[in-house]
Computed example of a mutant assay.
Amino acid sequence: MYNMLRDSGYFVETLGSPFTCFDASQYGTLLMVDLEDEYFEEEIEKLMDDVIHGGLGLAVFGEWYNVNSMSKMRFFDDNTRSWWTPVTGGANIPALNELLAPFGIAFGERILNGDFSIDGEQSHYASGTDIVKFPGGGYVHSFEFQDNSESSTTRSSGMTKESSILGLTEIGAGRVVVYGDSNCLDSSHMVTNCYWLLRKILDFTCSNIKDSVLFSDSARISFPMHEEESRLPSRRTDVNFSVYSGVLGRELMCHHDSRFEVWGTKGYGIQLMGRNRRLPGYPTTGLDIDLNSTTKASESKKIHATKLKKNSSVTIIQEALARVWTFCVHSTMRRLICQFSSQHNGWFQL
C-alpha cells in the first residue's frame, strides 16, 4: 500500500504520537489499518469532534478478533521453552469499537473468509470481521462468507452466512468508512489487493466523490444496524495487556515526531503542560483553544498513517505497540491521513 500511495503521488512521513498531537483542520482523512493498541479517552473525544464538527474523514480497516479462537491458539515455543498465547487478535476490535462508538459503528467477532466482487473487481476476504452496528441512512455491503470463528455454529457444518463487511456514511461535517479486513492492503499477506477500493474510499472521505456502485440505492439502509452492547467483542481478562500497550498505564504526551509547538504537551485542544513553544521566525499557535470546534475542513486534503514494526520477539512487540504515524501528501495538494499497525495477525506473550 505504501508503494501504491507513493506511485499515486503521495509523500509519506511518520509521527508516533496520539491523535491529540495533530491539527485535524489541516487534513482530510484519517486512515486506520489493522490496529492493536488502546486509545486515550482524550483521543476518542478529539476524533469525534474532528469528524463531526471539523469535517475530518475517517476510514478504518479492521481485522479478526475472537476470544475463543485466541484462547485455543496457545502453543509451546521450542526456542524460548515457554508457552505463548495471543495478546490480541489481528486488530484490537474492543478498542476500535470504543473509538467508533460515538458514530454508532461497531465490528463483530466473526472470522470470515471468502471471495466477493464489487463492480467487477474481484477481492478475497481473508480472516476479516463483520460489521454489527451502523447508523441508518448509511450504505452497507454484505456478502456470503465462511465463518471460521470458534464460537460459530456454522464452522462444523460448513455453512456460509451473509455478513456485512463495508459501510460508508456521512456523520456531521465528516465522512466515515469501515471495512472489516486489512490483508488486502498488506503485501506480505494479500491474495488480491483492494487498492481500487481504497482509492474509492479516499475519494469519498476526502472529496465527497461518491462511487455509483458503493452508493447504490440497494446498499442504503433506512434503519440503524443494532447489536446489544453485551454481545459485542470483549477484551481478554486472562492477559495483562498493559505490559505491551503504549497507552495503558502511560501518560498522554506528544513526542518529537509531532509539531515542535506541541512537544512535551498533551496536544491540541487540551490544557498544555508548560508554555507554548515556537521556532524562531514562526508564529505561535494558541493551543489552549480547540482548533477544531469552529474550523471548517480545509479543501486541501492530507493522509496520515501509522505502521508498527514486524518482529516476533516479545521485547520488540512491546516497542511495536507504540503507534507510529505516516503523513501522505498528494501531488495535487489533496491531503489525507493514514494509520497502520503491524503486519502481525495478533500479538503473543510468553
Score class of each variant (00 low, 15 high):
residue 175 R to H: 01
residue 175 R to I: 00
residue 176 V to F: 06
residue 176 V to S: 06
residue 176 V to K: 02
residue 177 V to K: 01
residue 177 V to F: 06
residue 178 V to L: 09
residue 178 V to G: 06
residue 179 Y to C: 12
residue 179 Y to G: 01
residue 179 Y to K: 00
residue 179 Y to L: 07
residue 179 Y to Q: 01
residue 180 G to T: 00
residue 180 G to C: 04
residue 180 G to A: 08
residue 180 G to Y: 09
residue 181 D to V: 11
residue 181 D to T: 10
residue 181 D to I: 08
residue 182 S to V: 01
residue 182 S to R: 02
residue 182 S to Y: 14
residue 182 S to N: 02
residue 182 S to L: 10
residue 182 S to G: 03
residue 182 S to C: 06
residue 183 N to R: 13
residue 183 N to S: 12
residue 183 N to P: 00
residue 183 N to E: 07
residue 183 N to H: 14
residue 184 C to L: 05
residue 184 C to S: 03
residue 184 C to H: 02
residue 184 C to P: 03
residue 184 C to N: 00
residue 185 L to H: 02
residue 185 L to D: 08
residue 186 D to Y: 02
residue 186 D to P: 03
residue 187 S to W: 09
residue 187 S to P: 12
residue 187 S to Y: 03
residue 187 S to K: 08
residue 187 S to G: 12
residue 187 S to F: 10
residue 188 S to G: 01
residue 188 S to W: 01
residue 189 H to F: 09
residue 189 H to V: 04
residue 191 V to P: 04
residue 191 V to L: 15
residue 191 V to C: 04
residue 191 V to S: 05
residue 191 V to K: 06
residue 191 V to G: 04
residue 192 T to M: 11
residue 192 T to D: 05
residue 192 T to Q: 07
residue 193 N to P: 04
residue 193 N to S: 03
residue 193 N to D: 06
residue 193 N to G: 00
residue 193 N to W: 00
residue 193 N to Q: 07
residue 193 N to C: 02
residue 193 N to T: 01
residue 194 C to D: 03
residue 194 C to A: 11
residue 194 C to R: 07
residue 195 Y to H: 11
residue 195 Y to S: 08
residue 195 Y to M: 10
residue 195 Y to C: 05
residue 196 W to Y: 14
residue 196 W to C: 14
residue 196 W to V: 04
residue 196 W to I: 05
residue 196 W to A: 06
residue 196 W to T: 00
residue 197 L to T: 05
residue 197 L to E: 01
residue 198 L to T: 00
residue 198 L to F: 10
residue 198 L to W: 05
residue 198 L to E: 02
residue 198 L to V: 02
residue 199 R to G: 11
residue 199 R to Q: 11
residue 199 R to D: 13
residue 200 K to V: 09
residue 200 K to N: 06
residue 201 I to L: 12
residue 201 I to Y: 08
residue 201 I to E: 08
residue 202 L to E: 08
residue 202 L to T: 12
residue 202 L to N: 12
residue 202 L to C: 14
residue 202 L to H: 07
residue 203 D to Y: 11
residue 203 D to M: 15
residue 203 D to A: 15
residue 203 D to G: 10
residue 204 F to M: 07
residue 204 F to R: 10
residue 204 F to D: 13
residue 204 F to I: 09
residue 204 F to W: 08
residue 205 T to L: 10
residue 205 T to F: 12
residue 205 T to G: 15
residue 205 T to A: 15
residue 206 C to H: 11
residue 206 C to A: 15
residue 206 C to V: 11
residue 206 C to E: 15
residue 207 S to L: 15
residue 207 S to D: 12
residue 207 S to K: 08
residue 207 S to E: 14
residue 208 N to Y: 14
residue 209 I to E: 15
residue 209 I to L: 13
residue 209 I to H: 15
residue 210 K to R: 13
residue 210 K to S: 14
residue 210 K to L: 12
residue 211 D to P: 09
residue 211 D to I: 03
residue 211 D to Q: 13
